Amino acid sequence: MKKNHVFMAIALPALALFFIFHTYPALQGIFYSFTDWKGYGSWNFVGVKNYLNVFKDNRAGAAYIFTFQFAIVTTIVVNIISLLIAIGLNSKIKFRKTLRAIYFLPYILSILIIGFIFNFIFAHFLPQIGTVLGSELLSKNILGNPDLAWIGIVIVAVWQGVAFNTLLYLAGLVTISEDLYEAASIDGAGIWTKFWKITFPMIAPFFTINMVLSMKNYLMVFDQIVAMTGGGPGKSTESISLLIYRGGFEGGQFAYQSANAVVYFVVIVIISIIQLKILNRREAAN
């Protein structure tokens, strides 16, 4: 009984805080999504009108397309780079522990600060270098180009996201016995054969975790865009999260953007479930 009392004393305050600051606001947002509330004043029930309008909104459609494009590209790139770095750091090289710490540094830095720093790099530092070198490509600020601005955001997101993914891949690589590689070498297996037949199947659960978490996080991209482009030029880099924030808190569309947020939550859940099913099936096949 004493243990139960201690457990309740620890768990109940945390549960209460979680409900107050997470669950209750979420339920409140769902409630207001069926109204015409602007974030202030009176309101009336409008049923599913807001949800229907989300599917008719061209601006929301463009934001969805950009967000999906960004999330897919960034997830693929960050996992490829992270896996390559993890394999390199797991090999017998000098100062590998120091290198692991260095690679993890970007992850502990503020996303906003990193965004502002890279904004300066893309807007001033690289163009100056490009002018000196006579390079037309480097002399232009890609964040000011509607067709290229998203690439700058991808670069920053990958630079910071590689750290966490690399850490997970390293955790998977250390579980693989060296005896497997020695046996494969005796059988004449090359580097690629070892990777596809031993390394990749053995770290499949870690690959699944990284893919699902990366996709989920990048679908909710917000801070990098606020710091680097503000959703511009025009609306070319406006993500769903940024659209919901601006429309809900700055544009008097609290109820409408609450409906948009609910729709997007369902989309993220569906995508995560599909990822898990596909990747888990691949794990079972291996």
Rank of each mutant, 00 (worst) to 15 (best):
I10K: 00
I10L: 15
H22K: 08
L27P: 00
L27V: 11
Q28V: 03
G29C: 11
F31N: 11
T35W: 08
T35D: 09
W37F: 13
W37D: 09
G41P: 12
N44H: 14
F45M: 14
K56E: 13
K56R: 12
R59W: 08
G61P: 03
A63S: 15
F66A: 02
A71E: 09
V78G: 05
I81C: 04
I81G: 01
I81H: 01
I85Q: 02
G88F: 14
S91M: 14
S91D: 03
K97H: 12
K97V: 03
I114F: 05
F116W: 15
I117A: 11
F118A: 10
A123Q: 05
P127D: 02
I129Q: 04
L137E: 06
K140E: 13
W150L: 00
I153T: 08
V154R: 05
W159H: 04
A163M: 03
L168S: 00
G172H: 10
S177I: 12
S177R: 10
E178A: 15
Y181C: 14
Y181S: 15
A184M: 06
S185E: 15
D187P: 00
A189G: 03
I191L: 04
T193D: 13
F195T: 06
M202N: 14
P205V: 00
K216H: 08
L219V: 00
A227I: 06
G232S: 04
G234Y: 15
T237E: 08
S239F: 10
I244L: 07
G247P: 06
F249W: 13
G251K: 07
Q253F: 15
F254S: 09
V263E: 11
F265C: 11
I268W: 09
K277C: 06
R281C: 08
E283W: 07
A285C: 00
